[in-house]
Design a protein around this nucleic acid. Structure first.
Lengths: 330, 330
DNA sequence: CTGTTAGCGCTTTCAC
DNA sequence: GTGAAAGCGCTAACAG
């Protein structure tokens, strides 16, 4: 149904290959006929077939992105930025959901393999290295976000960031500081918690296991964990959360219990998503340089896909953004 | 680099076409050799090339999705549900961002045209009908979400939903009810506002233009608009917002001004996104049946792509979810 | 500068 | 039941 190059060639009275060259602005074709063919193609409503081109060139100009859940604002922000940079480089995005299960994650990758994307970008992956290298051996490189131990990855210094958050609270005079984590499968969770623990130890504080718990990376998890903390004989005076969603849930639970943030309990989030600065109280959070992350990820994918030397594994620093959800311990 | 059908055929000592048939479970090939070929293909790590198949069959099993911004939780929830249903039907998703500009939207569609997706699904489109029908004439059907006047579309009854929200507030005794809209380009905005106006008129209330304003569909817009309302000599006692994000911003502004929700001002949102029930106070909102929407959209796209009769244009009802952000007017 | 031709990996008649 | 061969729409040598 759509117009093909052959149609254009016939209409222009030239060979198919000339059209192909003209349309790719090949200088080897006469500038006049080149312009004429381009004009004709436009008039005829010619739309190049990316799949035919892909078959011939072995490049699809499509990038696969596998996310746990696009509803997570942090992942959504990342995907949007990835899309922006990808568009600039001429790539389209194939989005695939993995849930949390490793099996679904493999399935998602397999679909992208079939679609012959030029590279795959995965935030928060938990697939095995062996599977990844098998995929890569087929000429489909994989770039990981937030997963150390993989050569092609970009991540932030989660340990350092976790430490930064805890230090901030310690500096405000807090001594009973809780940590509400994500899920066990989220690899960054351990690092953020380690950073938190390291900060306490540096200040000569012991880490109280009763003040460390596991949420689920979503608001309801934060809410439920906070409710439990509030039942304690000595509830924490400050809480560091795995991410902003968790923090929102925690704040909701605190307020629902009739307490105030930050007067009664201080809260620190992670990711600095857009809502963080707008809800009341504005949330103190650790910002990740998502823009840089997305940019580097796409560029690394691009380099890998074109066989150019890829930048080495990059670790970005986190940045503490102090807002009104934290205050001195009363 | 990847294993091809030809490789498998050679290894199995049969013709290429037999492999093709065996792999698609064609009953015309001997059940024993069929199983053997499938086993061999698996062992050899064969991954079918979707683009080669697409070229041959003229179906890519890819669906294009054009969103304004995936960071919008409502759109993200929709996309996730679309992906779930699409996966069940064997489709992959190509995601493309449109920003708000119609030009970018056309560009996004053009990329999907090149990729030869089987159909396009667009929430909140503002492209012209003529462009859409041109795309459709190439055998690439388009399904619209939340845009009336297009034959292949699914939407909720925005007028009715807007009326429902306003009635709820009127029933609580409110008389000064404001409306914070989205942007002008969001087509649902007008309908929601009409519903709001209709409710007031039905109850013999006049619509006060000073209480109607335009946000931007994001939290900061809601915050800024609410700040303006609070400067009024007689601020509203209740606010109906275009969507939940706008409502969150409005609530933030109210609380930042030292007032309380709902004791001083009631707030109603729209979309009932996940966060709505978790933040404090839990938000009264109009829920859309996103699951049904996504399901119908994918099925309509599928039907259109396969030339089967598509279900007629569907209008789903909205549903008022009353939570703690609304209360009787004091 | 332009035309001819051989694939890219797969599906699908058409023969046998 | 299986094989041979044409073709999907394009790119990229290879000739001229």
């Amino acid at each position: 149904m759509p117009v093909t190059m052959d149609d254009v060639a016939r209409a222009a009275g030239v060979a198919l290959s000339t059209v192909s060259r003209a349309l790719s602005d090949n200088p080897r074709v006469n500038v006049a006929t080149r312009a004429q063919i381009q004009k004709l193609a436009r008039e005829m409503g010619y739309v190049p077939s990316a799949i035919a081109r892909g078959l011939a060139t072995k490049r699809t100009y499509a990038l696969g992105v596998v996310v746990h859940d696009i509803v997570d604002p942090f992942q959504a922000e990342l995907v949007r930025l990835i899309d922006m940079r990808a568009l600039e480089l001429g790539y389209s995005l194939l989005l695939s959901h993995s849930g949390d299960e490793e099996q679904r994650e493999q399935q998602a990758i397999n679909i992208l393999r079939q679609q012959r994307v030029d590279a795959i970008i995965m935030p928060d992956s938990s697939v095995s290295d062996s599977f990844l290298s098998q995929v890569a051996s087929e000429g489909m490189p994989v770039v990981l976000l937030n997963r150390m131990s993989y050569p092609y990855s970009i991540e932030i210094d989660n340990v350092g960031a976790g430490e930064m958050a805890a230090i901030h609270l310690l500096d405000l005079g807090h001594r009973r500081i809780a940590y509400i984590g994500g899920t066990r499968t989220q690899p960054e969770n351990d690092d953020r918690q380690s950073g938190y623990a390291r900060a306490l130890e540096k200040r000569g504080q012991s880490v109280d296991p009763a003040l460390i718990t596991l949420g689920n990376g979503w608001s309801d998890g934060g809410r439920d964990c906070m409710r439990e903390f509030l039942k304690l004989a000595h509830p924490p005076t400050a809480v560091f959360c795995y991410n902003d969603l968790t923090a929102f849930g925690a704040i909701g639970a605190i307020q629902a219990a009739g307490l105030r943030v930050p007067q009664d309990i201080s809260v620190v989030g992670f990711d600095d998503i857009a809502l963080a600065s707008i809800l009341h109280p504005p949330l103190t959070s650790i910002a990740q340089d998502k823009e840089q992350m997305a940019k580097l990820a796409v560029e690394m994918a691009h380099a890998l896909a074109t066989g150019k030397p890829a930048a080495p594994r990059t670790i970005l620093p986190g940045r503490l953004v102090v807002r009104a959800s934290t205050a001195a311990c009363s």
